[in-house]
Design a protein around this nucleic acid. Structure first.
Lengths: 241, 241
DNA sequence: GGGAAACTGTATCAAGTGATATAGTTGTCT
DNA sequence: AGACAACTATATCACTTGATACAGTTTCCC
């Protein structure tokens, strides 16, 4: 399980064995990164995220990724270390993005909960929270990529790749569960189940996207369709309690 | 893209070139199958379904499958032709199983619809239908396998493998949509969206199963938990119209 | 401008994997 | 028993794919 880049260099090498003691990775391991290098790293990360979202970890090939990024194979090793490290970097990028989008409204919800809100106030807050999540997962321009990547995470489990997933979902589920418990009288487990249910529903439009688009004749999920999604979510929240 | 087994035999072969004209596949292509062979074929199909459900098409290896089935690699070729053919056979098996489980109740629903049922009758019928689907997808003993396989189908698209998927979902969605349209006043598109929504929800417990089990402390989705799932589905159906 | 660090590309390796040629064994029918 | 079809296993091939050795180029600081 230990990354190969940090060990494995026991054989004596004459030429550059002193300048790069343990073959570190650019950008990590306290290695400098020029603005140009940063841009390249970013470009690789972007196309990798798309590739992983589209094809999954195994199906996406490093060659396909580096070609799309306009670099050569060793660039991947240079900037990330390996395919798995690249995947992890993508997952971290998703979590960061998710946090950036949700932290504000999540914080609002938490402070509200601390102040013993009324049922209806909690209900309104939950709607706002779920709308933000729905936009993030299905409505935004990058949703097909980000949403699919997240959805795949649930299945592409195994290595150590699902850790970020828990880091992403667990807090959200807990928060939603607390809001639900405030709205209605639920024990912790029931509230959590409903929370999982509600959040999963927001992902449903992403998972079923191909079928949905095909059957409805939509070209994409636009603002009109998003309104319909909001309406369904709201009715589901109204039905709580 | 043409399967190799049917062509590719141009070089003159002296020994058995007459008895097996085009290298057919046992069980298909009008080739006999002894009871013993049938059992082997079935065993391969079962373990393959589990493997594909667990790992997806690409990650599941033919070696892993044949080893689990206690046969050797060429048996796969002999009985199915190739990995893709095996996958297709699995998909067909799933569709068959799904049909066997759902056809009865689906037929009931259709005959009822033909007779201009009342809203409440349609509602009850929809509940029964969705309960059956929920049991099939999450509650039955084989659900972890069958449900996961179906869920993966939606992502593992590409080759020609999603055709069966449409064959499986499209009729179900149409039926549910008609029931929904009977319960409430919806245009075709709205009814279809709600239908997709409802069906996706039944799959949600399968997709989010790991998270669900972890957060609730459940060991598996048993009858108690299924009752809770039914309750949520019912409330969602009650909310229609 | 000299040198070191940052960066890039070519060529190749090694493992995994689907496929299959070929030869063998078992079963069944006459 | 003989013959043919049904079935099975060993040994390989061909290709994909992640990784990387190595040599080169660019950039930037003194």
């Amino acid at each position: 399980m230990v990354r190969s880049r940090t060990a494995l260099k026991s054989k004596a090498k004459t030429s550059p064995a002193r300048t790069k003691p343990a073959k570190p990775v650019a950008g990590a391991d306290s290695l400098a990164l020029t603005p140009k290098g940063e841009a390249v790293r970013e470009r690789i990360l972007t196309v990798a995220l798309e590739a992983f979202a589209r094809s999954g970890f195994r199906n996406a090939t490093t060659r396909e990724i580096v070609e799309a990024a306009g670099v050569s194979l060793p660039a991947l090793k240079y900037y990330f270390g390996g395919k798995e490290d690249l995947y992890r970097a993508c997952a971290e990028a998703v979590v960061d993005r998710y946090r950036a989008q949700m932290d504000g409204i999540a914080h609002d919800a938490r402070t509200m909960l601390a102040g013993r809100p009324s049922r209806e106030a909690a209900r309104a807050q939950l709607k706002a929270l779920m709308h933000a999540l729905a936009i993030l997962l299905t409505g935004s321009k990058e949703a097909p990529t980000w949403g699919r990547f997240i959805a795949r995470q649930m299945n592409d489990t195994g290595k150590g790749l699902e850790i970020l997933q828990k880091q992403l979902w667990a807090p959200g589920i807990e928060l939603v569960a607390q809001l639900i418990a405030t709205i209605g009288d639920y024990d912790a487990t029931s509230a959590r189940i409903r929370a999982i249910w509600l959040i999963s529903n927001a992902m449903t439009f992403q998972a079923g996207r191909p079928i949905l688009l095909q059957l409805t004749g939509w070209r994409q999920i636009g603002s009109e369709e998003l309104k319909m999604l909001f309406a369904i979510i709201d009715r589901q929240i109204d039905e709580i309690g």
